[in-house]
Computed example of a mutant assay.
Amino acid sequence: MSFQAYLDNIEAKTGKSPDQFRKWGKAKGFSTGTGLAAGVKVGAIVAALKEEFGLGHGHAMAIVALLKGKKS
């Protein structure tokens, strides 16, 4: 599955676009807009995404990659 397919599936499930997840990450203090905030652990982000949005591990990791700025 391509990264874009992950994002499309996430948006279909949650109703949130990648830009909305970027804003969510900044609002939660997980990211700076250009990468993860200092001291933030990936596990904390994954746990929050699973709890708040019902995402599975793979989809949560796709959002982590988005927040890290590794994928656009």
Rank of each mutant, 00 (worst) to 15 (best):
M61W: 07
L67T: 00
A48V: 07
W24Y: 15
G35S: 09
L49Q: 08
I10F: 06
F21H: 04
K13F: 03
N9W: 02
S72F: 07
I63C: 02
G69L: 15
D19G: 13
G39A: 13
G15N: 13
T14V: 06
H59P: 00
V40N: 03
L66N: 02
Q20H: 06
T32W: 04
G56Y: 00
T34A: 04
G54S: 05
L49V: 09
T14C: 12
G15K: 06
T32P: 09
G25R: 12
G33R: 02
S31N: 10
G39L: 12
K26G: 08
V40F: 04
K41W: 01
K26S: 04
G54A: 06
S17E: 08
A27L: 13
V46E: 10
K50P: 00
S72K: 13
Y6T: 02
L67E: 06
K68H: 01
G56M: 03
D19M: 10
F3T: 15
N9Q: 15
I63L: 13
Q4G: 08
P18T: 10
V42W: 00
G54D: 01
F30W: 11
K23F: 07
F53W: 05
F53H: 12
E52C: 02
G69K: 11
I63Q: 06
G33H: 02
L66E: 09
K70I: 08
L67P: 01
F53M: 05
A12M: 10
K16W: 07
G15V: 14
E51H: 09
Q4D: 13
G25P: 13
E52R: 05
K28M: 15
G39I: 04
G33M: 01
Y6A: 11
L49M: 08
A37C: 04
L55C: 08
A12W: 06
G43K: 14
K23R: 15
D8Q: 12
G58Q: 14
A5R: 11
A62E: 00
